[in-house]
Design a protein around this nucleic acid. Structure first.
Lengths: 111, 111
DNA sequence: TCTATAGTTCGACATGTTTCGAATTGTAAT
DNA sequence: ATTACAATTCGAAACATGTCGAACTATAGA
């Protein structure tokens, strides 16, 4: 956690807040495993990440899912893109790398 | 985020929740910069991490600080140890490494 | 033992979050 | 146009969180 000041702590707090909810973390988790980061799954592939697919894995009302996706998007963790009737979701690799860098720099401080 | 299932998602959600509050993240930040991880600052060194030192940097009531420290501790992010009248705080390096591993494994999924 | 210092616990209040169902918007196909 | 499907927005209810001041506990020193 040494070069954290390039980005404000509040920014990181926003990211952690987005990941602090079990349902949102589950969405994030599904998304990291679903697509090549930075790409959107096309629907004709085995794994797709449209909102409906998430819905079927998450035992919550679709309005609740929509709310959580908005939070993840506002935190910069995911990207969303309409494709016909569906909206495809994917991880934003830049934010992922940002957080990874935060913690790996903290870890190098050890030893 | 590939080998996440060794520890439950809820466990990570708890950690992220602890870090999602700006004051708690600030405490965590101070602590990562203060002491060698896994050690407690002794009071005769330049940088100490007793509750009072945090208090003087954080513009919140000491009861609020106490509450936040408890949350960080329950999430496994910090350790606390009484030393006379003071309580010394330090980062728990194991949890830090756990989260670092989570994100660095997610990052290797890229490219 | 009395006093001062360091932290914590408690109760209360204001604010924020999660969740749902109903209504709405956007898109494609009939 | 009408219908069907996919997803979002809205309003309300239940619940959780952050904050404070006051009261309390713990330790050390006079």
């Amino acid at each position: 956690m040494s070069n954290y000041r390039t980005i404000s702590l509040d920014h990181y707090a926003t990211i952690f807040k987005a990941l602090s909810n079990p349902h949102r973390l589950q969405i994030f988790n599904i998304l990291t495993g679903c697509c090549e980061p930075g790409t959107l799954c096309s629907t004709d592939e085995m794994m797709s990440c449209c909102v409906g697919d998430l819905d079927s894995q998450l035992n919550i009302a679709s309005s609740t899912l929509s709310h959580h996706l908005k939070e993840l998007h506002h935190a910069g963790l995911i990207e969303m893109q309409r494709n016909g009737k569906q909206v495809l979701c994917s991880i934003n690799p830049a934010t992922l790398a940002e957080v990874a860098a935060l913690f790996s720099s903290a870890r190098t401080t050890q030893n």
